[in-house]
């Protein structure tokens, strides 16, 4: 318990550091957000409206310290100002929908890849030099070696364009209204299938190999041999006495992968025109939409920290040795 709280403290400090960095970075860059804004809206918006806009962004003439305090207050209340690219929608609303699709897409991709890769890794180590062990690791490492961008384009071209099995982009068909009904959910699944499949194919090999290699080491350990000597069934020996221990390095990797996913599903979302976080980020950069950029960076940072904290919890649950580590 103490460990969990201490880790929580660590993440709070990390979050604060990220927030502060997020505040100062745009202010250190040449071409500050204010000028970008004015240039963009010059002549179209009245000076009073612009002034009001500046204040919403916290770009006032006040001292840097009071700006910082205002910024923190805004962040804590989820108020990131108005998006420039999607004017006049508030940034929090824009990010909200993007975040939902990213978490859905990247989250399921990583989860599927991790689960499948880990299970296959267990199987490969268990049936050493068997069918799975001989073919799957090399195949997936080979596939994972292609640039992801290329892999995704080929998949889109072949299965989306040539064969027409899957839609070419977006999260759901334009003719459908979002709702919790079978037609809509099936359509969402059809749209997500290709992006998820490509990410899974590109990353599965890593999970498979990590799990296989740790598992082979653990299977040779004394405690697994003792479990065998106790007369337990092979499946019980492998799953209860070996796999749980072998899972530990993968779980650490899983935390890092979650971070990669939230920031790095960029390519997937671009290739498949998927309206997630990465797609929004591109829009934001294109339109010099600083409030949106800041908001996205912040959300990604916080999400990564949150995901890692969750992984810590899982780790503590899996490995009693971490529970009282000082």
């Amino acid at each position: 318990m103490r460990f969990v709280l201490r880790r929580l403290g660590f993440y709070l400090v990390a979050a604060w550091a990220a927030l502060t960095l997020n505040f100062f970075l745009p202010r250190l860059m040449p071409g500050d957000p204010a000028s970008a804004l004015f240039a963009r809206f010059a002549g179209r918006v009245s000076p009073e409206a612009l002034q009001a806009l500046r204040e919403t962004f916290g770009l006032t003439d006040a001292s840097i310290f009071s700006q910082y305090v205002t910024y923190l207050r805004h962040v804590l209340t989820g108020e990131f100002g108005i998006s420039v690219a999607y004017f006049p929608t508030p940034v929090s609303t824009v990010i909200g929908t993007g975040l939902f699709w990213t978490i859905f897409l990247a989250g399921s991709a990583v989860l599927v890849s991790f689960t499948l890769g880990t299970l296959l890794g267990i199987l490969a180590a268990w049936r050493r030099r068997g069918w799975v062990d001989t073919w799957l690791p090399s195949t997936f490492v080979f596939l994972g070696a292609f640039p992801y961008f290329w892999l995704a384009m080929v998949a889109l071209y072949v299965f989306g364009f040539l064969l027409g099995w899957f839609p070419l982009g977006h999260a759901y068909g334009d003719d459908l209204a979002p709702g919790f009904n079978l037609t809509f959910l099936t359509d969402v699944a059809r749209h997500a299938a290709l992006p998820i499949a490509t990410v899974v194919i590109a990353t599965l090999g890593g999970w498979l190999l990590t799990m296989r290699n740790t598992m082979i080491g653990v299977l040779g350990s004394d405690y697994v041999n003792l479990a065998r000597a106790k007369g337990l069934t092979p499946s019980r020996v492998v799953l209860r006495y070996a796999a749980r221990n072998a899972l530990l390095p993968s779980v650490t990797g899983f935390g890092m992968a979650l971070g990669y996913v939230l920031g790095g599903s960029l390519l997937t979302e671009i290739v498949f025109s998927y309206p997630g976080q990465g797609y929004l980020l591109v829009q934001a950069v294109r339109n010099q939409d600083y409030p949106l950029m800041q908001g996205i960076f912040l959300v990604i940072t916080l999400a990564v920290l949150g995901a890692n904290w969750l992984v810590d919890l899982v780790y503590v649950w899996l490995d009693p040795r971490t529970r009282e580590a000082s």
Partner: peptide, 21 residues
């Protein structure tokens, strides 16, 4: 046969107990 008829205390007590169970 294992454990019901023949059991064993392993040479390395340090390593023969599973650390997470």
């Amino acid at each position: 046969l294992r454990w019901r008829r023949i059991s064993m205390v392993f040479q390395s007590a340090m390593d023969s107990l599973n650390p997470v169970i």
